[in-house]
């Protein structure tokens, strides 16, 4: 059930990308889609009664092995979040240039892009 809710979040982002005309709204849809994907990745690695994969002094390793959640999806999600910020900066730069050229954020008025 909980995975389907993530899927709804991804679907909402896709809907925003495909149907909106304002370029900032398209970027917002992109960010929402990213949030859904990250949440799905973390949910896959979760273990019931799990705790963070961080060892503290005095912890028993045998007990830790049975309780720690999966560190691998967490590490890859961490890189993905920072890449998302960089890509967002690139998209915003392109949006600024388009605004300067056409004086609008509306993509249907940017006629030169239509080949």
């Amino acid at each position: 059930m909980i995975y389907s809710l993530c899927l709804i979040l991804i679907g909402i982002g896709l809907y925003g990308i495909l149907t909106k005309r304002n370029i900032v709204k398209i970027i917002i849809g992109f960010v929402i889609m990213e949030a859904g994907v990250h949440l799905l990745l973390i949910l896959i690695g979760y273990r019931m009664q799990g705790e963070a994969p961080i060892l503290q002094p005095g912890m028993k390793l045998s007990e830790f092995i049975t309780r720690a959640v999966d560190p691998l999806p967490q590490a890859l999600t961490l890189t993905s979040i920072v890449i998302g910020l960089g890509v967002l900066a690139l998209m915003i730069a392109i949006a600024i240039r388009l605004y300067e050229r056409y004086k609008t954020f509306d993509i249907t008025e940017m006629r030169r892009l239509k080949g």
């Binding site: 600024i96 605004y99 008025e109 030169r112």
Partner: peptide, 14 residues
């Protein structure tokens, strides 16, 4: 942001 005059660009392309 150097905003172009609206009459310059868009109408031309149309």
């Amino acid at each position: 942001i150097v905003v172009p005059k609206k009459s310059d660009n868009i109408n031309d392309h149309e």
